[in-house]
């Protein structure tokens, strides 16, 4: 009995320093952590066109020209403009509420028209002889069907012509900061239009619609169809040559 007492097992390890070790690691990760997720303005560049002659001639009224010169000043549709007014300008161009001559001509899209066009193109698919023609008609059918589902959701709407575009051109010494500010203003103009439409039709803002929810996806598509985001990353133009 006495002998046993003299041979005690290994004593308990002191865990008091465990907290210190954990603290050390914690501080290391605290310092190295960067929580930032990259945010920015997403854009799609146009693919390089091999033969320049193919570019269509676009009506002047369908293009909203925004020029930024080397001194970061704006020239919009031939008139100097303050950046504060750009958002309203872009909205007016996209919407053209007064049907002005110098802004894009909107065509009314109604259910009858769309159904007629679908029927026409479907007949085209049936009648087409070669595959290329058939594919073209098929594409048209899908396009008009998308419009039909949009009409089912929001009713007849005014459509922008396909060539309507906001064209942004910069000088060689324009600052990147100004360029981003202008992009931001144009973007927010379009976003406001979409928000207003969505609020009117669905009672919620466009930005509140969730792309991951199945019931919201057709709504998003419909609104994008009415107000497409058409800010062109124009071919670089040498502004100095024009003057």
């Amino acid at each position: 009995m006495l002998k046993k007492r003299a041979k005690p097992g290994p004593g308990e390890i002191n865990a008091g320093s465990m907290a210190d070790i954990a603290f050390l690691l914690l501080i290391f990760f605290l310092v190295t952590t960067t929580m930032d997720t990259d945010v920015g303005i997403l854009r799609l560049l146009p693919p390089i066109v091999e033969d320049q002659e193919q570019t269509d001639i676009v009506k002047e009224r369908n293009v909203y020209v925004v020029l930024i010169n080397d001194a970061d000043q704006l020239l919009v549709e031939g008139e100097p403009m303050d950046i504060k007014d750009l958002r309203a300008g872009a909205k007016e161009f996209m919407e053209n509420p007064a049907n002005l001559e110098n802004m894009p001509e909107k065509t009314r899209v109604t259910k009858d028209v769309v159904q007629q066009r679908i029927a026409e193109n479907k007949a085209g698919v049936a009648a087409a002889t070669d595959d290329k023609q058939k594919a073209a008609y098929q594409e048209a059918v899908t396009k008009w069907e998308a419009k039909l589902s949009a009409i089912d959701l929001i009713g007849p709407y005014n459509e922008l012509p396909p060539s309507a575009v906001i064209s942004l051109q910069t000088g060689s010494k324009t600052s990147y900061d100004m360029y981003v500010q202008v992009q931001n203003e144009l973007e927010s103009g379009i976003r406001e239009l979409r928000d207003e439409l969505s609020q009117e039709k669905f009672g919620r803002k466009f930005t509140e619609l969730d792309e991951k929810k199945e019931e919201d996806q057709p709504k998003i598509k419909a609104i994008r169809l009415v107000y497409p985001q058409r800010i062109s990353e124009a071919e670089p133009v040498d502004l100095t040559k024009k003057n």
């Binding site: 990259d38 945010v39 920015g40 303005i41 997403l42 854009r43 799609l44 560049l45 146009p46 693919p47 390089i48 930024i68 910069t170 000088g171 060689s172 010494k173 324009t174 600052s175 990147y176 900061d177 360029y179 981003v180 992009q183 931001n184 990353e233 670089p236």
Partner: peptide, 30 residues
């Protein structure tokens, strides 16, 4: 891109990206 960069440089970079068919871009901002 640093905000004080001239657009000339960025336009050149964008052209290069177009040539190599990298069309989806993002202007990173704060």
């Amino acid at each position: 891109v640093d905000k004080d960069t001239y657009m000339k440089f960025i336009t050149d970079v964008k052209q290069e990206l177009r040539k190599s068919n990298a069309l989806k871009i993002n202007y990173s901002t704060a």
